[in-house]
Design a binder for these strands. Sequence first.
DNA 1: CGGGGTGTATTAGTTGACATATGCACTAAT
DNA 2: ATTAGTGCATATGTCAACTAATACACCCCG
Lengths: 135, 135
Amino acid sequence: MNFFVDSHSGVPIFRQLMDQVKLHIASGALRPGDELPSIRSLAAPLGVNPMTISKAYNLLVRENVLERRPGLPLVVAEMDPGTLRRSRRAQLREGLKPMASLSKQLGLGEDEAVQLFRELLRGEAGSVSKNEDES
Amino acid sequence: MNFFVDSHSGVPIFRQLMDQVKLHIASGALRPGDELPSIRSLAAPLGVNPMTISKAYNLLVRENVLERRPGLPLVVAEMDPGTLRRSRRAQLREGLKPMASLSKQLGLGEDEAVQLFRELLRGEAGSVSKNEDES
DNA sequence: CGGGGTGTATTAGTTGACATATGCACTAAT
DNA sequence: ATTAGTGCATATGTCAACTAATACACCCCG
């Protein structure tokens, strides 16, 4: 149940936190009904403002990942596995959509694009190292 | 050889222009050696500042898409098809990389993710309508 | 050489995202 | 009722990205 934050990573703190909460849920470290660390107890050791934690939590509530109960700690929302899975797929789809149009625009064949994606999914170590352009 | 710009799309103007130039090259409307519309002749009808056009052109020069000749119009750079193709692939790769890590984080299987991507590449965009969350 | 064409370096202004500071409403236990 | 624990609404500060305005260096043509 550890949380980390890197202020110099370029990724907004609130987003780092959102991702980590989601990961802890995905990994089973946080299960539906579990209470989350309180905003202040999390903010103090991380050295960030409580409102930043609150923002992250709040966005997760909007995504139906967390549930709010006034005056009480936030808890992981109940989700049946089907809904959860569908939600995950939808999220990935949204991110993949612009890549699909880009691929078409670039004139790359479907198989080539898919093959590229599959490589990346396999732990994209270092098969390609000839990138000289594309800042 | 038409260019247009939408100031309210959220996408920076200079990026919209970069994409359109790349598309015109990909589609064959612009071929290596062709001169591009002058910055001012493009800026006037679009109603944007010439410097914005210049910024877009300049970034394309850094990507080796255009070539600069002081005092003269910019031209489409010469590129052998192999280099062009590699560049396109690299560009797609960069966009696909975060999607691959996302997919892993979400616990989706490789085949499932690939299948999803393939569907998107096939055009069919709107068959799923059960997206309740994910802002 | 002078005029009108190219692109560009430098500078400044505007906007929005991000993080913060303060104070409040709520709940539970004493 | 008091106290200490939740999370949250509002306003403020900060900083980087984007766009724009100005002035300049260069090239061609007459």
